[in-house]
Amino acid sequence: MFKDGPHIFLVKFLHGWLPVGKLVSRYNSVKYPSACPSCDEPSEDSEHYLTCPNPERCKWHTALKTPLWHRCESVDTDPALLDLLQWDLNHWLQGTPIPTHRVPKQIAHLLHSQTTILEWDNFLLGWWSKHWTTLQLQYLQRNHIEVKHKNHGLSWSSNIIHLMWDHCYNEWITRNKARHGKDAANKAQRRLEQAHRRIRDLYDLKPKCSLQAQRHYYYPTVEDHFCRDTDASSLENWLETYQPMIMQNVRHQRTILDRRLHPIDEVFHLIRTTPPRNPTPMMASRQRTPILTTRSMTHISFPTESHPPLQHWRQQPQQQDQPPHHPTRPPQ
């Protein structure tokens, strides 16, 4: 069903960790806005990316209904279950509540059971009630349809779930194109807009930096900066170079302000009723003159001897030692 790339999507989708706007904005709200890239929704969550009302994003609704019908027909699905599935899917995608008073007659008896009411937040994740498989098996036995491996039990439900996961992944690709751009020109424009947002946020921190940092890191105004660097690559290089320095300088200036200590006279008003008295002078300590004793030291001179001549230092050649003579022992 899935390859390596969609497998990562499936793991994040099932655990609720898709990088939608509401989630990634917690890391950096300037770099990653929380709004939907296709509509005016201020907070994009995992449910909104599937139910976005944008016309381009709604195309997957029709693309899901037709294959879902054919897939259910191929595995001998109960028509009442299929009608309930599609009827509830339409209301969930349109964002309207289920009108229980307008339930079709063929599926009215299914909605009376609490276990068959669809909750699409869990239904798309594959958390189906076991009552679905029970109703499907009863339909097969009641109509004398041969029970096969694919038309009942977990195989029947997983066959339908995999189809919905495929379409959810395709919708995620469409959403990413709306966020990051479809072609090269659109992607470059998205990068430029993101760099402008990040740089404007850093220029808001300019008054909090030291004067030396303001002269070295910033241009006079943010508009002068955009006139100097017009492409996204130059702006991103400036961000990678100076953003850590600016943030460190802001933290340093904040620490200086937090640790500034005021004199105690500014905090408490001291009232003195009597003038202070002069302190009593301390007694001068006696100065002891050190006793210096000079001792005459006799200079001892050692006689110097002349070095022996050079030939005395030469080593005489040693005679080679003769091997010891051992007398031959007489034979016994």
Rank of each mutant, 00 (worst) to 15 (best):
H326C: 05
Q318M: 06
K105Y: 05
R200A: 14
I271K: 11
S306F: 07
H262K: 13
H307N: 13
T62M: 12
F9A: 06
L310S: 12
P99G: 09
P330E: 00
Q287L: 13
P290R: 14
Q194E: 11
P323L: 07
V250E: 03
W165C: 00
G126S: 05
S29D: 15
P19Y: 15
T289Y: 11
A284Q: 13
P53M: 01
E223M: 08
P276V: 12
Q106P: 06
R254A: 10
Y219F: 15
H15N: 15
R314S: 09
D45A: 01
W132A: 01
P279E: 03
R175E: 01
H252V: 06
L84R: 07
T328K: 00
P324L: 07
I199Y: 06
F13W: 14
Q114C: 07
L14R: 14
N159R: 03
R286A: 11
S157E: 02
Y32F: 15
N54Y: 01
P309G: 12
S74D: 14
H152C: 02
E73Y: 13
Y49W: 04
R329W: 02
R288I: 13
P244A: 00
L257W: 08
P37Q: 00
K65T: 08
Y203M: 09
I300H: 12
K177L: 07
Q212T: 14
L89H: 12
S38K: 01
T116G: 02
C52N: 02
P290N: 15
Q243P: 01
E47H: 00
F123E: 03
K208S: 13
G21F: 07
R259M: 13
P281C: 09
G16L: 14
W128K: 06
V24M: 15
I300K: 12
C58G: 04
S46A: 04
Q212C: 07
L14T: 09
I117R: 15
M164N: 00
H112C: 01
S155A: 10
T298V: 13
M1I: 09
A63Q: 12
D121N: 14
I8D: 12
R71Y: 05
